[in-house]
Simulated scan of single mutants.
Amino acid sequence: MEGLTFRIATEQDLDQIVAMLADDVLGSKRERYEKPLPNSYIEAFVAISADPNNELVVACIDDKVVGVQQITFTPYITHQGAWRATIEGVRTASSVRGKGVGTALISWAIQRAKSRGCHLIQLTTDKQRPDTLRFYERLGFQATHEGLKKKL
């Protein structure tokens, strides 16, 4: 997509980020986009920013944030102590969906993981998002494991 750039998110981006997270069927049920933003978002941003193994990355066109993803880099004892990257919280602004921003975000994350020496990149998607699952499969991701979660 023409003019698309990537950078580490700043606290000033939080409003646009939370708006994107809340702007879909599932996100509207679990996010709280209100002004001022709930303090929990600011606290999470501060923790992510302080952690050298976490990056909150935004995709921008001019000064407008049109995509977001969090990448976490984790060392593992398995695979001979290799590192892996996990992509979470991928969203694109509704105004640019279907225009290549999501593909560009994931491609950027893959290159970033390679530059950090990761041997594997992984992600999850909600089973209620079959179109998203097909999107990730088109980008070369495979459902090789069964993931489990438990709310606390």
Rank of each mutant, 00 (worst) to 15 (best):
M20L: 06
P130W: 02
F135L: 06
P75T: 13
D62S: 04
K99R: 15
E55F: 00
Y41R: 09
Q12K: 15
Q16Y: 09
T72M: 05
L148R: 07
E146Q: 11
Q142I: 04
G100V: 06
K29I: 05
Q69C: 08
P38R: 13
L26F: 12
L56P: 06
S115M: 13
L21V: 05
P75W: 03
L152Q: 01
A9H: 03
R134W: 03
W83Y: 09
A109M: 06
I77V: 14
V57F: 05
K99G: 10
I110V: 15
K99D: 10
R91W: 02
S107V: 11
V96I: 08
M1Q: 04
C60R: 09
I48H: 07
G147I: 00
N39C: 09
G102T: 10
I8F: 03
Q122M: 00
A85R: 01
S94A: 12
T74L: 04
V57T: 15
W83P: 00
A113T: 04
G147K: 00
Q16G: 13
L139E: 13
F45L: 11
L152Y: 01
V68I: 12
A19V: 11
A143F: 01
S107I: 13
I77N: 11
I71A: 03
C118W: 00
A104W: 03
G89L: 01
P52G: 11
Q70F: 01
I71C: 08
P130T: 10
V66A: 02
V18W: 05
S40T: 13
Q80F: 04
V101S: 04
I121P: 01
I71M: 09
A44N: 14
A104R: 07
K35C: 11
D24P: 08
K114N: 14
T5R: 15
T92R: 08
I42E: 03
V25K: 13
L133I: 14
K150F: 02
R116S: 10
R7H: 06
M20Q: 07
V65A: 14
M1S: 13
D13P: 07
E146V: 12
Q122K: 00
I87M: 07
D62I: 01
T74C: 04
I61V: 14
P38W: 02
G3V: 07
Q69D: 02
I77D: 06
Q142W: 01
L152R: 01
K114H: 15
Y136R: 11
L120I: 07
E31S: 12
H119W: 03
V46H: 14
R32M: 10
L4H: 11
R91D: 06
F45P: 13
K127M: 06
L139S: 15
D63T: 10
L105P: 12
N54G: 04
Y136D: 10
Q128P: 09
A47C: 03
M20D: 05
Y41I: 10
D62L: 00
Q12W: 04
P36K: 04
E34S: 10
S49I: 08
L37Y: 08
T144W: 00
Q111C: 09
G27E: 01
Y41D: 12
V18G: 09
K35R: 15
R129H: 11
D23R: 05
E146L: 12
D23Q: 08
K150E: 02
A50N: 15
